[in-house]
Design a protein around this nucleic acid. Structure first.
Lengths: 209, 209
DNA sequence: AAATTACAAAATTTCAAAATTATAGCTAAA
DNA sequence: TTTAGCTATAATTTTGAAATTTTGTAATTT
């Protein structure tokens, strides 16, 4: 793996997991010391991230983490509902027992983590586990839709969605609602009811609209 | 405007207007002579294009224009229908007389070009005009949807869609169908019939599914 | 006190050379 | 004839310095 790809993946992850603050200036000249490479290599990675919307680029003024924005969150939620509903519906239509098994497994893991969080309120060591399991659940939900493009686009939106919520994610205020919502989404998908699945996905995200 | 942005925009345009052939290797080392800048600057622009899906990047093997792919076109069409329908529906709901005026203007220009193309079969001088007008019509159709994110995502998909059709676009075989389809989309949108608009968009793109 | 100017420091952008890797062609051995 | 090994060439990746622009601060002017 090349240096640039290493830098890209590292920064990509930190952009959506509160590794940098909203609005923070990202200086290639500083990060090069941390990564032990040239500022040009960091700059390349930042350009890719800017195209993904995870960093804002302004000529001659460098790169900056996007601010939290109520409007951006609204738009991301709306588009995420659209994509995830379509992906889930197509997965219901095209998925097989294998998809159901994977979805149940993903849900099992996620609900296990969320229930632990809900009982103990021990937060910090679980955030990474929760983060990965939440993503895995939603991605598995659409994984049999038959379109890599839809999956990729959904991922792009999901990443930006997570970035907008990266501070709030760490308060864990959402957990009890999530347990219920994720269960409802799973049940609806397992029952093969497309409209119900779409409605449950919408309910899950409606508070951000 | 910086060099890199210049290079990016130039390459971006050529990626979707048959400036390079499907599957062609894109060498920064060669293009630097054309642009009169360093290969590193070209490489930066290519990284951005790769994130947009208009160029494929492979470590140590550089950049390549994506092949034509029946499957990719299918996925792009499906996703484009999804996004464009949603954008059109939201525009119908949220748009005002001003949106209708802009859409009628965009359609007028597009149909004028398409009719000329249909009558005279003079192709080459019109491709750029048609290209711009077709894009303008579809973008205007969704322009009052209230979501910059949806508009931006649609544009990204539309670009890739045009790349897949950039050779076929130059045969002009589609023109008479297009005249009819665009008119139907306009009429449906003007009538405020959401379901009909969605159906007409679907019909317009169904041959690529 | 507020606005403007000048200058130094910091940051950004670009460059082309060095380091590294892939590719192509040739030769020898099996 | 095929395969493996070697070498030269071409291309890719990375580097850090030079060129350019922005930012911050102090001094001056209004």
């Amino acid at each position: 793996m090349s240096y640039e790809t290493n830098v890209f993946e590292n920064l990509h992850h930190r952009m959506i997991t509160n590794g940098f603050e909203h609005g923070q200036k990202i200086r290639a000249e500083h990060l090069r010391k941390e990564f032990g490479c040239s500022a040009s290599t960091v700059r390349e990675a930042l350009f890719r991230l800017s195209t993904l919307g995870l960093v804002q680029f302004q000529e001659q003024r460098g790169f900056r983490v996007p601010q939290k924005s109520r409007n951006t969150l609204h738009e991301l939620s709306h588009l995420r509902i659209l994509l995830e509903s379509e992906g889930a519906i197509q997965s219901i239509r095209q998925g097989r027992v294998e998809w159901e098994a994977r979805l149940n497994a993903a849900h099992h893991q996620l609900s296990h983590i969320e229930k632990r969080l809900n009982e103990t309120q021990i937060s910090e060591p679980f955030i990474d586990l929760w983060f990965a399991a939440e993503r895995q659940f939603h991605e598995t939900l659409i994984s049999s839709c038959g379109s890599d493009l839809l999956i990729g686009t959904h991922r792009q939106i999901y990443d930006r969605f997570r970035q907008q919520l990266m501070v709030e994610d760490r308060t864990f205020n959402f957990v009890s609602d999530n347990i219920e919502h994720h269960q409802q989404i799973l049940d609806a998908a397992m029952s093969g009811d497309e409209a119900l699945t779409q409605m449950k996905i919408h309910n899950h995200l409606a508070r951000h609209l």
